[in-house]
Write a protein that binds this DNA or RNA. Structure first.
Lengths: 151, 151
DNA sequence: CCGGATCCGTTTCGATACTG
DNA sequence: CAGTATCGAAACGGATCCGG
């Protein structure tokens, strides 16, 4: 049985009412594998539709996907709208708050590139190889961010 | 019954053997609430002992803490040693790989500061208020990182 | 005391089937 | 197409026990 707060995670239900340590706020997102995967797919793979999220290599199941989309929307990180091209589809897109997570993800990529031998030299990310992306991250970070978000 | 791979997370057990999308590598850490809490406490609260981790506001339980410490050690993010002051205690500390996550966390803090009204203006983090920390993050980031890790 | 391991009731997840 | 419903499996949380 889904409760009134349906799928709101524990850290929100028991939220303290005072200032709290940094990072804590982000635990609901960066502390949940599936939320991260969805955000990754939106940012780096340009996914916008339910079907596309289902197709990730990590094989998210339909109920979990639905719950996370709902949660991300409730958190104000994504928004949902009908597809103007196809009235029977929905389009999910990042809000400003969601887009603002890109710098975090880029630092995560920098870290992965350094310590994960499998994070792919041959795996294209945006419009170039990760190696290029990392160079640009050092040199013109703001332009890179703009480019990833706007295409 | 703990298996041979004790608590190795799913994303590792089913790891693909080829280049993969960025972020994916980090899912075992950034994708697990408890691992993140432990890292947060080590970096921003200077915790080093089992007892200290247990005392977090999130109330991690002993079995979960033990499993995550083991996992973080297996991932090479932390190391474990006997406390020279007290032979019956252990000291956990960040490895280089673990310390290298600090830039990610700092971006997370920047994000939280912008969108979470509760991330505390009055909550001291290192040796000053978050407001100061954010200023320094813009101005002399590298020195700030050094100070957090060594200071 | 310290750092867990073990047991066990409860919660959450995940795969599949099904529906508006 | 975009989700619910269901139900077994896994993870969690709390209490307790145990070797050093």
């Amino acid at each position: 049985m889904q409760s009134l707060v349906y799928d709101l995670p524990m850290s929100r239900r028991t939220a303290l009412h005072g200032p709290r340590c940094p990072i804590t706020f982000a635990l609901d997102i960066f502390g949940d594998k599936w939320s991260l995967i969805i955000l990754r797919d939106m940012v780096f793979k340009g996914k916008r539709h339910y079907r596309e999220f289902l197709a990730s290599a990590e094989k998210i199941s339909t109920n979990i996907l639905a719950s996370r989309l709902k949660r991300l929307e409730a958190e104000g990180l994504i928004s949902k709208a009908r597809d103007t091209k196809n009235q029977s589809k929905f389009v999910y897109s990042l809000t400003g708050k969601g887009e603002a997570l890109l710098p975090v993800m880029l630092e995560l990529i920098r870290w992965s590139a350094k310590y994960d031998p499998q994070t792919g030299i041959s795996d294209n990310i945006v419009n170039g190889a990760p190696a290029q992306l990392l160079e640009r991250l050092d040199e013109d970070r703001d332009a890179l961010i703009e480019e990833i978000l706007r295409g």
